[in-house]
């Protein structure tokens, strides 16, 4: 009802038109100042506002996908080689496995964090877990390198434990 009154007054005079414009502006300001609440089913804006998308990036898209596939496919002959021979005969096998398996694991863990602890829903825990994973991955890479260098290596360890 108030809007119809405003409309009527808007047609009457320039002052009324200004009043209408200021009403619309106030309304717009109110909708943009409404706080977005992370962690709840509240989205930015009204039902008429489009959802936001991350900027397109090949690094997070096709390149990332192709890298994941190449890594997974590379693990097939590497796993076969680990059954056929051992890291003692070919230390490079333990070296490659120690990097590729950790990368494969990191991508898998990262997908779980993105799926279950997305920053949109978990603004604190999500990034915290992402950085915890990054720290753990670096520590794992160093640990595997140390084990492959100073001890018997991954494949030899599995073979010995299996027949222990």
């Amino acid at each position: 009802m108030s809007s119809s009154i405003l409309l009527r007054s808007a047609f009457k005079s320039a002052a009324g038109r200004n009043a209408l414009r200021s009403t619309l502006q106030v309304r717009h300001a109110a909708s943009s100042s409404t706080q977005y609440v992370p962690g709840g089913p509240i989205y930015k804006g009204t039902v008429n506002d489009p959802t936001t998308f991350p900027p397109p990036s090949k690094t997070h898209g096709s390149y990332h996908w192709a890298f994941e596939r190449l890594l997974s496919a590379a693990l097939v002959p590497l796993t076969g080689a680990a059954f056929a021979t051992s890291g003692s005969a070919y230390p490079i096998l333990d070296g490659i496995l120690g990097v590729s398996l950790v990368m494969h694991s990191h991508i898998g863990f990262d997908s779980m964090i993105v799926d279950y602890l997305h920053p949109r829903k978990f603004p604190v825990l999500g990034p915290l877990m992402t950085w915890t994973l990054r720290t753990a991955t670096v520590a794992t890479l160093v640990g595997v390198y140390q084990f492959n260098t100073n001890d018997i290596g991954l494949t030899e360890l599995i073979a010995k434990v299996w027949t222990a």
């Binding site: 160093v142 084990f147 001890d151 360890l157 222990a164």
Partner: peptide, 25 residues
């Protein structure tokens, strides 16, 4: 499987004397 890899590698990094191959075997 990844948790096992991470767990063992970090354990070896922290305590190489306890989690070396000889002790595990």
């Amino acid at each position: 499987l990844s948790a096992l890899l991470y767990g063992f590698s970090i354990a070896y990094l922290v305590a190489p004397g306890t989690f070396d191959s000889a002790h595990i075997v």
